[in-house]
Nucleic acid binder design. Structure first.
Lengths: 364, 364
DNA sequence: TTGTATGCGTTATCAT
DNA sequence: ATGATAACGCATACAA
């Protein structure tokens, strides 16, 4: 017997307009009427129906947290879990509810249904290509990207300062440790996070008169052909392409196991680098495991660094020198930025670039 | 200028009822009219408004995934991330959207707003006390608990088979390894997962003529007074209380650091157990770290076991003997069960108890 | 098979 | 300060 607004109105001896005001603009009512209405509402545990409010107000107080991945895991991912926490916390503080979407790339309808007309804004995960973003824009739904890049207008972007973080790692290795032969291991460089990290690696070497490590055992390949760079990122960093950037080692995925297995096949190189800079912690952990199995000591023979500062980075042996990324903070900032676009649909494209911190541990 | 149903109707030269049917009961329409309507809808990228559908249909196709914790982390938690993945996957398959709730215990209104009238069902996280569950019941919103326990009617419960899993660990330690002095380390035993694990520990000892390890260095304390047991769980296992169950070591929280620090203060015991059974992997990892620092070898001096099979359990040194729990599966089953209650509100209280698997690694 | 009329629960406009 | 009434966008019983 869920009560509706009209029931409460009848019980309180007022019109339903008055009950509506009691909830949305209490200051308009006489204190006496307000108290009477709210008393009855409490008695029957009445609250206005959110859906009905939404359609009458043409505004939903609902935002989407949308993940577009190739496959599981979605929220199990060490990044999206805490990012969701941060996003939700700010959403709640601003009176928004969060609805989830997770879909694979195949479906060309991206979470049909709720997306269509019923959310006020959307956070899109790392791999949202421009055509998807445009679907939202065509429906006037503001969009914020997290850890991604686009050249489209009126889109918010929140990212970690990948370039700056990797520069800190390189400075540490070159200036503090004096290493010169430094290799780079990543998975597909087209990823909007890994590319800036790679640029920072290249630039730091160049600025110190050093050259990218080239593994003499591996066949040469064309970096740009094999891993076509994202044009938006290239232009952000004022590059034309990836020529002259050497042939970093690319592992098939950023998982511990994958990195470990790939390196086990490759090691030992005829000429070993003094340090290995990895695009992520997981890759670094896999690389360390492979190195150990091949008899190399970390960091005495080869130093290794990661990126992200996942939980395991501090618990593994040796513990990992890395850059601390704060997904919770990224998520929280995303929601704040999304609100700007919801309030002002014409707000220009903005990038929020979060500072990060170098964590020096045992592996370097 | 988002198109509405009536616009599409006009463009197609039909009434809006026909457009409505085109989306909800296409088989009712003549193929010709249907095609014409859908063509126009596609052209204008029209989809029915979910919110309006919801209020007209009086059911929302929306379920809540609600976390009730003391504090962060919510979805960062190694359990709730994958559980959410599983829950979402099944929700999507059944045409439901998922809205999130996360709140701390203090607020006596639990996610006011969407909960109130606008979800068809709710999944409640591990620490949902009965009064909260009743709030939903009073609003006729079906509830399923994950990793929790209640004596209330018409509530679904999905849990890992904690008792069975821990029994497997104990059998392994006693029968295969021949260990006799076995200690138990947990955090607060009132937790609905840890209590069955503890019962399994006690029962296995008793059935093999062994006794709970008692640390002679620690002051005795009254288990039942210190950690009042959940009555629902007691009755499920047919127990009266916790008398005669010894004084297991209780750490303040189930985190690696906490367990490590607590154990560092306690070690070495005057008399060491041959094995330490921990209520979770994180506790076990902390215990291992403490043991190593105090000069004990795992498993040569003391064997250690965990529970949950978190990612780190396979990557730490020594890798951890544990029970594999599948949060993804738990989440998926929860959604399936929730659907039963949505379709049949009178469905009786049901427990789904998921089988698990013993994983023997280096630590035992 | 399709159209008409009414209802869903709320907000907003315009009176009073 | 409060009430009457028309949206809001869609579903559905009933009529045709």
């Amino acid at each position: 017997m869920a009560k509706r607004m009209v029931d409460i109105a009848k019980l309180a001896g007022v019109s339903k307009s008055t009950v509506s005001r009691a909830f949305s603009r209490p200051e308009m009512l006489q204190k006496e009427t307000l108290d009477r209405i709210m008393g009855i509402a409490r008695m029957y545990d009445y609250h206005p129906n959110t859906m009905a409010q939404a359609i009458a107000r043409r505004h939903f107080n609902l935002v989407g947290f949308l993940l577009l991945h190739k496959s599981r895991p979605f929220f199990e991912h060490t990044f999206y879990g805490p990012a969701l926490d941060g996003f939700m916390e700010r959403a709640k503080a601003r009176g928004y509810h969060v609805v989830l979407g997770a879909t694979t790339r195949r479906n060309d309808h991206f979470e049909e249904g709720f997306i269509n007309d019923s959310i006020d804004g959307a956070l899109l995960s790392s791999r949202a290509p421009d055509p998807f973003i445009k679907v939202f824009q065509s429906r006037n739904i503001p969009v914020v990207l997290i850890q991604n890049e686009t050249g489209l207008e009126n889109v918010g972007m929140v990212t970690d300062d990948d370039y700056g973080g990797m520069t800190k790692i390189m400075t540490h290795l070159i200036k503090e440790r004096g290493y010169e032969d430094i290799a780079f291991i990543s998975c597909r460089l087209s990823h909007p996070c890994y590319m800036p990290r790679f640029f920072a690696y290249i630039d730091a070497l160049e600025q110190n008169g050093l050259h990218p490590f080239a593994n003499p055992d591996l066949p040469k390949y064309d970096l740009e052909d094999s891993y076509p760079p994202n044009p938006s990122i290239l232009s952000r960093f004022g590059r034309q392409g990836l020529q002259r950037f050497g042939t970093p080692i690319i592992v098939p995925s950023a998982h511990i196991d994958t990195a470990e297995k790939t390196l086990l096949k490759l090691l030992p190189f005829r000429k070993m680098p003094r340090a290995i800079v990895c695009a992520t912690d997981d890759i670094a952990i896999g690389v360390c495991r492979a190195l150990k199995q091949k008899g190399f000591r970390v960091p005495q023979d080869v130093a290794v660094t990661g990126y992200d500062d996942v939980e395991m980075a501090s618990f593994c042996h040796p513990s990992l020198t890395t850059v601390h990324v704060d997904p919770y903070h990224l998520g929280a900032e995303s929601m704040d930025l999304l609100c700007r676009y919801i309030e002002d649909p014409g707000y220009p494209s903005t990038r929020i670039c979060l500072k990060n911190e170098l964590i020096i541990r045992e592996s370097s």
